[in-house]
Design a protein around this nucleic acid. Sequence first.
DNA 1: GTAATAGTGTCTCTGAGACACTATCGG
DNA 2: CCGATAGTGTCTCAGAGACACTATTAC
Lengths: 210, 210
Amino acid sequence: MWRDETGRSLADYPHPSVAVDVALLSVVDGALHVALHRRDGHAAGELALPGTFVRIDETLAAAALRALREHLGITGRSPEQLRVFDDPARDDRGRVLAVAHVDLVGADVLPAGTETAAVDRRPTLAFDHDAMVAAAAEHVRARHRREPDPAGLLDAEFTLAELQGLHEAVLGGPLPKDTFRRHVLADLEPTGGVRTGTVGKPARLYRRTA
Amino acid sequence: MWRDETGRSLADYPHPSVAVDVALLSVVDGALHVALHRRDGHAAGELALPGTFVRIDETLAAAALRALREHLGITGRSPEQLRVFDDPARDDRGRVLAVAHVDLVGADVLPAGTETAAVDRRPTLAFDHDAMVAAAAEHVRARHRREPDPAGLLDAEFTLAELQGLHEAVLGGPLPKDTFRRHVLADLEPTGGVRTGTVGKPARLYRRTA
DNA sequence: GTAATAGTGTCTCTGAGACACTATCGG
DNA sequence: CCGATAGTGTCTCAGAGACACTATTAC
């Protein structure tokens, strides 16, 4: 451990605490939702994103996963970093920098009873979590404009209609069928199979390339 | 100040230190350069980005500005946040999270003698500063693909050739004249003046709109 | 056959890029 | 006039979007 001239280590200097907050998004009832929890202790009952303080030997990703586990009972995802929120007044318990994260999971990953809110009609959240949700939704939507099912929410094989339904749910609006199909076909390969047992012409099955 | 059940404040818990590092980019000799400094004390002589630890009541932007002032003697810019670098082994003095920032300034802002390196042919830097410079260059280049002179490096009035020269320097390669002009004209308005005193047909002067 | 869904041919519009051309200065 | 730089007309190509059409199943 490094020491300065007076024998103090880095951690001995006063410095901000660091928290992670995770906007865990999911498609529920055909719309993009965010998972929330009610705070207890200080300011109990207020809706907030799952978050936690970063421990001294923990990566941000590890802290984000721990927040999901402790607050929502969810394991095994890989949150992406958005940015640091550093308004000095954002947390009245002290000086806290918050690194916002985003992840997108299937609705089946959320334990029964998990509280969620549609990102486009959400209640006011604690701290600056509203801005975090807005940034998270924009991040996920931008990726879904560029790439088919970037989070791998669909099964290994899926029809173009299923893919389009996912993208419409994430983006929050209808997409033109023909343009959408031509747009995503470049990143898909047909498996040769078809989806049977439904009404109408059977749909070809695809998987993502690369 | 908030206290837990045992009377400890947030800052009493062990937590990572937070640093800012700034990739200060500039156009020098027609190419994108990054300003560096030589570290002293521990690992003296190694080239690094200007950086500093974030004080407990300081915003990230304020810390970034302070790092530029203390290491390079530069004031008055507005660095943008890139992302947090959190490899546990990135700093052998202790657990340090680094928030990378980027800014782009005119070469005239750099004090005489400032050490710089072309971003595309740079020496190996300390810590993970190589990755920060790469991210910073990509960030600045992406903005210059979308928008004319986003950092306002040119004078209030400029010719299209001057603007194109700036973009070629930032992007690191030649641009087609006619396509470039049509691309940026949407965001410019002619001032009515012309640049005289040069060889050839006088060029019209423009300013950025909005 | 009909209803329903899957998939495509084609037209238009727009923007990027390439190329060559015209325009206007100093000398 | 010439050399040099500024600026434009136009062609082609590719992708987005709109529309209508064809294809293939269950019943």
